[in-house]
């Protein structure tokens, strides 16, 4: 019985689901199936239940499930589209889609804005940016005095916060990243172009009769 359940969980998503995900994202059907190989591996790393929990997500990023990190947590929360506390395969594909090289800059800017809007207020607030800076310094063992952090924040907000209300809205963020395009580097994963060569075993598990190019 246990074997049966375990094996059924390893099945690919239904053909219609795969085709729909491919139609609604930058991925081909083959790439969605290759992503399933990756999803299956991450989602079975702690509990083999066909879902990625936060511990498994952190383990995939850091190779260490004990390490709590506000950025990984934030990304996990954004990937958890249905707010169930876990990432299912559809969430995984749709969220990773934003990181595809072919996806519009507008979508990448919107996602990165949400990423830094830690409290979902519709603004990136100075206190949030300070919190993230302190977390980054802690993570990287880098030490900066508080007045240096304040200087960095002042400089950043004087450039980004054009209406000087102490917070950054989406329009200001769009202007800011246009002047600092390197900020969007984290929003593109070139790896996603080659996902089928990274996970070629999808061919043996495919549910789709004719693998679309």
């Amino acid at each position: 019985m246990g074997c049966f359940v375990s094996r059924s969980r390893r099945k690919f998503p239904a053909q219609e689901k795969t085709v729909t995900l491919a139609a609604e994202t930058a991925f081909t059907v083959s790439e969605v199936e290759a992503l399933y190989e990756l999803f299956r591996s991450i989602s079975s790393s702690v509990i083999d239940d066909g879902l990625i929990n936060k511990e498994e997500f952190q383990l995939a990023i850091f190779k260490n499930k004990k390490k709590e990190n506000i950025f990984a947590t934030r990304i996990f929360d954004l990937f958890d589209v249905k707010k169930k506390g876990v990432i299912d395969f559809e969430d995984f594909v749709r969220s990773l889609n934003v990181f595809h090289p072919n996806v519009s800059l507008e979508d990448k800017i919107a996602f990165s804005f949400r990423l830094y809007d830690l409290r979902n207020t519709g603004f990136i607030e100075r206190a949030e940016v300070k919190e993230m800076l302190i977390a980054l310094l802690y993570e990287s063992d880098m030490k900066l005095a508080d007045d240096v952090i304040e200087t960095i924040l002042n400089k950043t907000f004087s450039e980004a916060d054009l209406n000087e209300d102490g917070k950054i809205d989406l329009e200001e963020w769009t202007n800011f990243v246009a002047k600092n395009p390197s900020l969007l580097k984290i929003m593109t994963l070139p790896y996603l172009r080659d996902i089928t060569t990274s996970f070629p075993s999808f061919i043996f598990n495919s549910n789709v009769d004719e693998v679309a190019a």
Partner: peptide, 26 residues
């Protein structure tokens, strides 16, 4: 670049927690 020469978001984007390339390293 020295940390003080970078803007806050350039620094933040250095976090490993934001580097999703690690997801593919399985």
């Amino acid at each position: 670049d020295q940390p003080t020469a970078m803007n806050a978001f350039e620094l933040i984007s250095l976090s490993k927690g934001l580097n999703l390339e690690n997801l593919f390293d399985i």
